[in-house]
């Protein structure tokens, strides 16, 4: 009891301290790096709260992919205007501190009040847990995501696709290569890639399969695959194209198509909309989701409509 409480207190203090450093730190670059550290500490907090699915998602997406996106954007801004690198962009508003404290107190009061409520006997979560056997997966989070709250997951894929399309729409036509082509590449990088990229695919597929009965699932797997894509485009193995190739267009909408297609098919087959006919269907939808999560994230990082191998 004692020692675990100490760990919780340290994690909580670490989160708050890092958050303060992120918003009030003098250097923008440092703030971004500390934000990534914040995400990793948050992943530890999820693990402490018995939510390993969230811990993996936070580490892979919240810290990893978001951090890569932030750093890439920072680099592009510096490239566009190197003189402004030193500016801190920290304003001074007398209102900021009192408003921040007040909202913090408000959220704290809401949370404290909610903790005083007696725990309900039949929450949606307990119902979902009880009905888990019917779904064919034993990881309750995967069950909820795909079976009980399928609409959320479907719309989430829509949001991700919209974000990609929106980013394409606002991007200027000028092509931008994120790779460092003018600098010779150290020999170690190729060796690392030849090991790590196959491993990301392996880990992605493992996470997808494990998601049925253990922590994991399409989102974590997709994020790991996207990380492989990020590595490849960062080292110039994958270069941006001006248009999205047909295959990649199909891949972008594959998750939405398979999930909604399956849902509609079940509707016409006399079952409920978006219900899935068995475990095989869950894994099929999850595979499609994984691929359709990985590609837009990698493309968003590369800030390109499409990617192709360097040799082509």
């Amino acid at each position: 009891m004692g020692i675990s409480l100490v760990i919780d207190v340290l994690l909580a203090l670490g989160l708050v301290g890092l958050a303060l450093q992120v918003v009030a730190g003098p250097s923008l670059f440092r703030s971004i790096v500390l934000f990534v550290v914040f995400g990793l500490v948050m992943a530890l907090a999820w693990a402490r709260l018995h939510a390993p699915d969230l811990a993996m998602a936070e580490a892979a997406i919240g810290a990893g992919i978001t951090g890569a996106l932030l750093l890439m954007t920072y680099r592009r801004l510096v490239e566009l205007n190197p003189e402004k690198r030193g500016e801190t962009y920290l304003g001074s508003r007398w209102l900021a501190a009192p408003v921040g404290v007040l909202t913090g107190v408000l959220v704290g009061l809401i949370g404290w009040a909610a903790l005083q409520l007696p725990p309900g006997d039949t929450t949606a979560g307990t119902l979902a847990r009880d009905a888990l056997d019917e779904t064919g997966v034993s990881n309750p989070v995967t069950g909820v995501l795909l079976v009980f709250r399928g609409y959320d997951t479907l719309l989430e894929m829509g949001v991700l696709l919209l974000a990609f399309l929106g980013a394409r729409a606002v991007a200027s036509g000028r092509a931008h290569s994120p790779g460092t082509s003018e600098v010779s590449e150290p020999a170690l990088v190729g060796a690392l890639l030849s090991l790590v990229v196959p491993l990301t695919i392996l880990v992605g597929i493992y996470l997808l399969r494990a998601g049925g009965h253990a922590p994991g699932g399409a989102f974590q797997a997709g994020a790991v695959l996207a990380a492989g894509g990020v590595l490849l485009s960062l080292t110039g193995r994958l270069v941006p194209t001006d248009h999205t190739p047909l295959v990649q267009r199909l891949v972008l909408v594959l998750g939405l198509l398979v999930f909604s297609g399956m849902g509609l098919f079940m509707l016409f087959a006399g079952s409920a909309m978006l219900s899935l006919p068995g475990t095989w269907a869950i894994y099929l939808v999850e595979t499609a989701l994984m691929i359709s999560i990985a590609l837009p994230l990698a493309l968003l990082f590369a800030q390109a409509p499409g990617l192709k191998g360097r040799g082509h």
């Binding site: 958050a19 303060l20 918003v23 009030a24 909202t103 959220v107 704290g108």
Partner: peptide, 11 residues
């Protein structure tokens, strides 16, 4: 912690 992090974010 969550209240403090949220407040820090608003700040």
């Amino acid at each position: 912690a969550s209240a403090a992090v949220f407040g820090t974010g608003v700040y």
